[in-house]
């Protein structure tokens, strides 16, 4: 017998022997909820979704196999391109925007003393408990071109603000500003990371006459790079799935008549329309898999690129 076969066989045997242990049964007992949930709500649906993406299923008629037609349609549908572009542009606005604003606030908080930092931290987090649907509804009022609060405030300093909620060129920047309002969670993460940077690093640098910017660039950023990396990945994944605020503000029963320029047609909004308004469930399933691939590719690129910059104390973890 080949030696490799033997080791494999003994591994299987060892694996099987594990089930003689009562602990193993207990462990699988505790895991049961997740195992059931995985089959019913994740694994099973994934297979169904993949199958559906090759059909013209609409939830009413008998469906038929259409081969790759749905995927071909993805390539030719101009709204796919539009909504993907909208989503990526929006992500490019809100992810770095949130990170920069959060880092600025966190760095200020790290220098005013713990007690006052705690109070400000709470205040900054408050917008984050606001449901995104309310954020979208508030956007229409606060960013109203004629009477909104934002343009009112801009007017005080002599700036004539744009028509945020109707001008297609300003809809995404406006929504992005509204989104960056809920930056509080990121501030808390950065503040925790900043408080963990050893003080003597700064002291040594200052003795050596290193300037403020250099200290930021060569001490602060590397030392909190794991937190920056974590928020970059998570926020990009979330941004690519933006739905609530855009749908609340611009889509729904009657809103399409008011707003037809597609400037806020994000990918998930279009997917939702295809699936549950036009009942093109086969097509929408293909759309979902495209989104999955896009998210995977972007995340892998981010991980690959970030690996060169992320610094973990004490080597690899």
């Amino acid at each position: 017998m080949h030696p490799l076969d033997m080791s494999r066989k003994s591994r299987v045997r060892r694996w099987a022997r594990g089930f003689r242990d009562r602990d193993t049964w207990a462990a699988y007992g505790f895991m049961t909820p997740w195992l059931i949930g995985f089959v019913v709500f994740l694994g099973g649906p994934m297979i169904i979704s993949l199958v559906l993406s090759f059909t013209d299923y609409d939830g009413l008629r008998e469906s038929s196999n259409v081969g790759f037609a749905n995927y071909e349609q993805l390539l030719s549908d101009p709204k796919i391109r539009r909504s993907l572009a909208n989503t990526v542009i929006y992500a490019i606005m809100i992810v770095p925007g949130t990170m920069i604003v959060a880092l600025g606030l966190a760095m200020m908080l790290s220098r005013v003393g713990r007690r006052s930092a705690g109070v400000f931290r709470t205040l900054f987090y408050l917008p984050e408990v606001t449901p995104k649907v309310a954020v979208g509804v508030l956007f229409l009022m606060l960013f109203n071109g004629q009477v909104g609060l934002v343009n009112g405030a801009l007017g005080l300093v002599g700036i004539d603000g744009p028509d945020w909620s109707t001008d297609p060129a300003w809809v995404k920047p406006g929504l992005a500003l509204m989104h960056i309002w809920s930056v509080g969670g990121t501030v808390i993460i950065y503040l925790a990371a900043l408080n963990n940077v050893p003080r003597d690093l700064y002291e040594a640098a200052e003795l050596d006459g290193v300037s403020g910017w250099q200290r930021f660039r060569h001490i602060t950023v590397p030392m909190i790079s794991h937190a920056l990396f974590f928020t970059l990945i998570v926020q990009t994944i979330n941004a690519l799935q933006t739905f609530d605020e855009a749908y609340a503000a611009f889509y729904g029963s009657s809103a399409s008549a008011t707003y037809s320029s597609d400037a806020a047609l994000f990918y998930l909004v279009y997917l939702f329309q295809q699936a549950f308004q036009f009942l093109h469930m086969g097509y929408a399933s293909a759309m979902a898999w495209l989104l999955f691939v896009v998210i995977m590719v972007i995340t892998v690129i981010q991980i690959k690129v970030s690996k060169r910059f992320v610094h973990y104390e004490g080597g690899d973890r």
């Binding site: 709500f41 994740l42 649906p45 994934m46 399933s285 979902a288 989104l291 999955f292 995340t299």
Partner: peptide, 11 residues
């Protein structure tokens, strides 16, 4: 890693 959109319709 799996976006909710993938399982939304089957669920």
């Amino acid at each position: 890693m799996l976006p909710g959109a993938v399982t939304m319709i089957p669920v």
